[in-house]
Design a protein around this nucleic acid. Structure first.
Lengths: 214, 214
DNA sequence: TACTGTGAAGTGATTCACAGCG
DNA sequence: CGCTGTGAATCACTTCACAGTA
């Protein structure tokens, strides 16, 4: 009887579990059988109490006096968080950033598959990115997304087009949106939205720089 | 006698002030003279108490019964936070992502200037990106960064090279690093570091998706 | 003995709610 | 009267510290 947790783990915890999973896979490749929370903490640049608290969310699966068994812990994290579940994604916008994201090894990791890039420019449509992802006509987005069964849409279009792109993705049935345009989109009911405003990132960095002395 | 605040405003507040600044510039172009905290909140998708709390950090500059005077508020935010201060940045890594970032309008906004992209690949060195940013030899990074007076370094290299790239930037005297590699760098004393792990973003999104029903 | 699991304390940010001023 | 500025309440997350167990 699998427990169904709608909002079980916080975003912060999920992020740390994801990083933890990376370490665990590495440890597993190295053939390590078990690790303590403090060893894991050291790898993550965190502290052991944090690691234990995070892992406690998945039930009691450590062995007192010993630590956690690596393979078991890995499968447990995957099972309970959905981390590692394969997903198909599409990118809207075949500009510099869109193509970079589509080809990026960052986005091809552990079970993610970029199925298509969409653009409105007829000169781009029909082509392929460097790694072979097809560039499709944005007018066919709805049909293509359904056909491909894409669950995640990445928005990489100029700011004024962001809302429309996100709307189309939602209409086509994606369940999550990662938006890189400097203009927040959403919220949409039933859709997980993450806005990553690159402009905001540099501006904030510049300000923190000013605050820290110059 | 300007007040020198080392760690005056939190990161969260700075981000909101940055967004606020965007709205204010827009309002100023429209010739709006004053706004209330609730009008601003609506534009940001926030709430009025939050806006007032954020603005209170800059001193008392609202007019009770009326709101905030737009031009005055804008200059005050710029002055106190360093938002809007022109900065020179360099990008390390002339791959897809590096070039996309260097050419991105997101990074050319409001006073930011990308002065150079560095790469180790001799076939790339000597060229220019689409918008004309020169690609320089990574071996010359130290000298070039000092010469250009770059304060912010953007890391856009593969994970295994991230630490070395960041180290060189710090050695060359940059005061802030924006790292896009899926491997955290830093901390370095006296340097503001922001890690933006793209892989982590999609993975977390996938997990939140799983948590919310599928 | 060496570790986990967890209550309790601590920290920081957000929201509420209202007194006070133009 | 309408709006700001802000103390107090709330909430979310992190760290501490230790009882309890394999």
């Amino acid at each position: 009887m699998a427990r169904r947790r709608s909002t079980g783990v916080s975003e912060a915890t999920t992020q740390r579990l994801s990083l933890l999973l990376r370490s665990l896979r590495e440890l597993e490749r190295e053939g390590v059988g078990s690790v303590s929370s403090s060893e894991l903490a050291e790898r993550l640049g965190s502290n052991s109490a944090q690691v234990r608290k995070d892992l406690a969310q998945l039930g009691e699966l450590g062995v007192r006096g010993v630590g956690y068994r690596v393979p078991e812990l890995r499968t447990r994290i995957e099972g309970h968080t959905g981390l590692g579940t394969p997903r198909t994604l599409v990118v809207v916008g075949a500009g510099n950033l869109g193509k970079a994201l589509a080809d990026s090894p960052n986005f091809h990791s552990e079970g993610f598959r970029i199925a298509a890039v969409f653009d409105v420019d007829p000169r781009k449509v029909g082509g392929r990115t460097r790694t072979g992802v097809p560039v499709l006509d944005a007018a066919r987005l709805d049909a293509a997304v359904r056909e491909l069964g894409a669950a995640i849409g990445v928005v990489a279009v100029p700011a004024p087009a962001a809302r429309a792109a996100a709307d189309s993705l939602v209409a086509a049935g994606v369940k999550a949106i990662l938006n890189f345009a400097p203009h927040a989109v959403g919220p949409y009911p039933g859709v997980v939205v993450k806005n990553v405003d690159l402009t905001l990132l540099v501006e904030t960095l510049g300000a923190r720089l000013a605050a820290s002395g110059a």
